[in-house]
Simulated scan of single mutants.
Amino acid sequence: MTEYEMPDPVVRIEDAREAARDLVVIPNRGVQLVPNIGIVGGSHSVLVVETGMGPENAEAVLKFATEVARGRRLYLTTTHFHPEHAFGAQVFAGEATFLINKAQAEDLAVKGPGYLEMFKGLGEAVARRLDGVRLARPDLVYDTDYDLDLGGRTVQLRATGRAHSKGDQIVTVPDAGVMFTGDLVESGQFAIFPWFPPHDIDVSGTRWLAVMERLVAERPRVVVPGHGDVGDARLLEDVRDYLHVLREETWLRRGSAMSEETIVEEVAAVMVARHPEWEGREWIEKGVGCLCYEHSVR
């Protein structure tokens, strides 16, 4: 996945800032494999969204959340099972109620061990962060939606169905107009397609696009992406539009005798010309590969 040594994916608690009343975001500061993390409070409970990668990061997040909570009950949820989002949940055992959707729980149990080993291969800094990881079991599993009462504030947890992963989850705070998207949305970066055949082919470009159409219609005031700067509803529109063009440009060429390698070259040129400032160009190839497959089985 990478040809260079990744920086240490450390969560910096000191960068935390308030995005709404009793709602704090710990930003990823543009560091790879560091997610944006949320702390959402109500009168009697506090929800933590994402753990950071590994026990040490999660311990810092838990300590900070405990200070913010000031005696309130703690909950933990994660937007999907990938290591930087969920591979610190073990630290919260006995301190917080860990709740996620059924598909994500299955991903964590079935695919988690393979992702743990794969990510350890991304460099020494990442491997150190993952040292001692034990994949946690959720305390509470829901099917498609769950309304969490924090006391005077309800947080909506919604499983989107298969998109970036099988178990993607949107976390919405309606009274604040805030939406946590996980890796369904990135800011300033091409969409991350974890397309690794034959080991993992659960990502779906077509279903992801359908999910984004629904999210755009919700028009949240604040969007907290999986990675990158916090923004507004335009972040949702950017991802929707990118996925739409990626699909159309790929399928236009897939219907010809053109090789997949040539399709990748041509589509990548189109997408980079449209978004020259975006990072993560390597994910365009993965997206094209996924959509070529979906074209063949539709």
Rank of each mutant, 00 (worst) to 15 (best):
A273M: 10
T97C: 12
G167Q: 03
L76N: 01
T97G: 08
V224G: 01
L122I: 05
D143Y: 10
E18F: 03
G226N: 08
D183P: 01
P220L: 10
M6V: 10
L252F: 14
R70M: 10
G188E: 07
G151D: 05
I170V: 04
V141H: 03
W251Q: 15
R137D: 08
M258W: 06
A89S: 15
F193H: 11
G114R: 13
T206Q: 14
V216N: 01
F81M: 14
V264D: 14
A217K: 09
H199I: 04
D22M: 10
P113C: 00
W195Q: 05
G205E: 07
G123F: 12
L47Q: 04
T51C: 00
H244P: 00
L235Q: 13
M118G: 11
A69C: 08
G132H: 09
N28I: 00
E14K: 06
Y115S: 05
V297D: 12
R158L: 07
A125D: 14
V224R: 01
H44P: 06
R128Y: 02
R21G: 11
R254F: 06
D145C: 11
V264F: 13
R137A: 09
A159K: 06
W278Y: 13
G94E: 11
V178M: 01
F180R: 00
G42C: 07
I100Y: 00
L246I: 05
V31M: 06
Y293V: 09
D15P: 05
R214M: 10
H275E: 13
E285Y: 12
T160F: 07
R12T: 08
H164Q: 11
V110S: 12
V171S: 01
G88V: 00
R12S: 08
A257M: 14
V31H: 07
I201G: 05
N28G: 06
G42W: 10
T79E: 00
R17N: 01
S256C: 02
A60K: 15
H80W: 04
V173F: 08
R29V: 03
R247G: 11
V171I: 12
T78N: 15
P194F: 12
A127G: 06
G54S: 08
I13W: 09
L130M: 10
G71Q: 06
A210R: 14
L209N: 02
I39K: 04
R72C: 07
H295N: 13
D22Y: 10
H295D: 15
H295Q: 14
R137T: 06
A20W: 12
L140M: 02
G94Y: 08
M271L: 15
D131P: 01
M212R: 02
P7G: 05
W251F: 09
I100H: 00
L33Y: 10
N28T: 01
E266S: 13
G52Y: 02
G71F: 05
T144R: 14
A159G: 12
Y146V: 02
L47M: 08
A257V: 11
R274V: 04
K166H: 06
R17C: 01
M179Q: 02
M1S: 15
A93L: 13
E56W: 09
L252C: 13
A159E: 14
G38A: 06
L246W: 01
E282K: 15
A176K: 04
E261W: 10
P197L: 07
T262G: 08
W278F: 12
P276A: 03
V25M: 06
R240P: 02
G54K: 14
A58C: 02
S45F: 09
G112P: 02
A125S: 15
R134V: 11
A103H: 04
H82D: 00
T97V: 15
